[in-house]
Simulated scan of single mutants.
Amino acid sequence: MDDLSHLQKSVLEKYTHLAKSLHSLDNTIKQLNANKHEESPEQVLQQLREIEVKIALAGTLFKGSVYSLVLQKNGLQK
């Protein structure tokens, strides 16, 4: 991994973080599905709202990272 540029390493780190977040989300959804008979619909909705906020945050961070990388690349080419 030493032959990668700083930008490439940064992108890979962002993808790693995103993958970990998606795995965490998958585990949470599996947990919700397994406990669907133990919790009230209101509790499930609350948990889904929390997941929705986390997904939105991850998406925003990812878009910001991509935008930043595009700006950096365009700045380097000028």
Rank of each mutant, 00 (worst) to 15 (best):
1 M>T: 12
2 D>V: 07
2 D>F: 03
3 D>T: 06
4 L>Y: 04
4 L>R: 12
7 L>P: 00
9 K>M: 15
9 K>A: 06
10 S>G: 12
10 S>A: 14
10 S>R: 04
10 S>E: 15
11 V>I: 05
12 L>M: 11
14 K>V: 11
16 T>K: 13
16 T>P: 00
16 T>C: 03
17 H>A: 14
19 A>E: 04
21 S>I: 06
21 S>H: 12
21 S>G: 15
22 L>E: 13
22 L>Q: 15
24 S>I: 04
24 S>A: 14
25 L>N: 10
27 N>E: 11
28 T>D: 10
28 T>L: 15
29 I>C: 15
29 I>S: 05
29 I>A: 11
29 I>Y: 05
30 K>P: 01
30 K>L: 15
31 Q>L: 11
31 Q>T: 14
31 Q>I: 11
32 L>I: 15
32 L>D: 05
32 L>S: 10
33 N>G: 12
33 N>L: 02
33 N>E: 15
34 A>H: 12
34 A>T: 11
35 N>P: 00
36 K>Q: 09
37 H>E: 08
38 E>F: 01
40 S>P: 07
41 P>R: 04
41 P>W: 05
42 E>N: 10
43 Q>K: 14
43 Q>H: 05
43 Q>V: 11
44 V>E: 04
45 L>R: 01
46 Q>N: 08
47 Q>T: 07
48 L>S: 09
48 L>N: 12
48 L>Y: 03
48 L>T: 06
49 R>Q: 07
50 E>R: 11
50 E>D: 10
50 E>W: 03
51 I>E: 03
51 I>S: 06
51 I>R: 01
52 E>V: 01
52 E>I: 03
52 E>D: 14
53 V>Q: 15
53 V>S: 09
55 I>C: 06
56 A>L: 12
56 A>R: 07
56 A>D: 14
57 L>N: 10
59 G>I: 08
59 G>S: 10
59 G>L: 02
59 G>Q: 09
60 T>H: 05
60 T>K: 10
60 T>Y: 05
60 T>D: 08
60 T>M: 04
61 L>P: 01
61 L>A: 05
61 L>W: 06
63 K>F: 03
63 K>D: 03
64 G>Y: 02
65 S>R: 01
66 V>K: 00
67 Y>T: 14
67 Y>W: 09
67 Y>D: 09
68 S>D: 00
68 S>R: 01
68 S>G: 02
69 L>T: 01
69 L>A: 06
69 L>D: 00
69 L>V: 04
69 L>C: 02
70 V>Q: 01
70 V>C: 02
71 L>V: 08
72 Q>F: 01
73 K>P: 00
76 L>P: 00
77 Q>L: 11
77 Q>D: 02
77 Q>G: 02
78 K>H: 13
